[in-house]
Design a binder for these strands. Structure first.
Lengths: 197, 197
DNA sequence: GTCTATAACGAGATAGAC
DNA sequence: GTCTATCTCGTTATAGAC
């Protein structure tokens, strides 16, 4: 995938992607100037346009894919932490709440801000955001299926689980409080437990 | 409130606020250039800085308050549409889904995009967003209280109702589908109905 | 109150040496 | 692959006539 180099050392391309993902996680696409981006990545403008001829947009698509995968890993960790699917979903909410507070309310969803800025005006970015959302839903759906829920219930509940976690994450970030996420986790667990297996 | 004038005719100040609210609803704060704003409002740059010496930011705060109130009215309409609180919340989700599709997936939440852009970098805007969120939560909380739920359940459920509707609205907008909102409405109704009155 | 012209600045992107 | 200098354009904001 990446150019050859010392194991563990991040190449310029990877540093650009990770830095872009982090900055877009904080404030979205439009609020992230490329100059600040390359500076924080320890790179230069020349490197950016060498690796991403499409410029800021092309880098943003890669950053959304990276952030989406990072988020998916946290999701998988939480979903695997309990045998009961309802408790597992609640654990995800707790993980998100901890990450948010520990980052001084900065590390919210790596996709949502950019998604709302891009909708209807930057199709490439919007598509990358939708891909990330769909991936996350699929992970929850598979976990519910494995937990014994019907195909229809698993699909529908997975949609609401992701929607609710997203909305609660936003509320928690803007209000600088873990409460929205912790309540969302508790309520989602109760909702899931109310379905037959 | 507004300058005197023919009843029903909107003054320049009001047109600026409404236009800013609509554009920020579509793409957020950073994606809304003041030039386009004044053009669509049928105003000029001179008028903007006459009514809002604080410039774009001051106008944005007024626009968030306006959009927050508009959203609150739709919320109140839905919440008053059924005697059962659970059915009333589901009705809100249906109203949001209809407004979103009828606007070709443009008219989402008037606050969320700006909220995520502003968090941690534009305190005035962030505060205006949080005020709007808190107002919406209060409307739901009062409706649940009036429906016979305990003070604690009403408060906690109101938080999750707003979080979930917000997240589902985002998912619906990005995915151009009513499904996230309709499922959220159904699941929220089920969750609310599972609490004792 | 409204208008146009423009200032002052920062944005994304490019050129070309190394 | 990396670097610096620079180009071009769009942005917010201001000036000053009307």
């Amino acid at each position: 995938m990446s150019t050859t180099g010392p194991a563990g050392a991040l190449g310029t391309r990877d540093r650009l992607i990770r830095t872009a993902s982090r900055l877009m996680q904080h404030g979205g696409y439009e609020t992230t100037p490329v100059k600040q981006l390359v500076k924080e990545a320890g790179a230069t403008l020349g490197s950016l346009y060498h690796f991403f001829p499409g410029g800021k947009q092309e880098l943003a698509v890669a950053a959304l894919a990276f952030g989406g995968e990072e988020f998916a890993e946290m999701l998988s960790t939480g979903l695997a932490s309990h045998t009961d699917p309802a408790e597992a979903v609640e654990a995800v909410a707790v993980l998100l709440a901890e990450a948010l507070r520990d980052s001084d309310w900065r590390d919210g969803c790596p996709v949502t801000a950019t998604a709302l800025e891009s909708v209807g005006r930057l199709p490439d970015l919007q598509a990358a955001c939708e891909t990330a959302f769909a991936h996350w839903r699929q992970l929850v759906e598979e976990r519910l299926l494995a937990g014994g829920f019907s195909a229809e219930d698993s699909r529908d509940l997975a949609m609401t689980v992701i929607s609710t976690l997203e909305g609660a994450e936003t509320a928690a970030q803007v209000g600088q409080s873990q409460t929205p996420l912790l309540l969302a986790g508790r309520h989602l667990a109760r909702l899931i437990a109310s379905y037959a297996r």
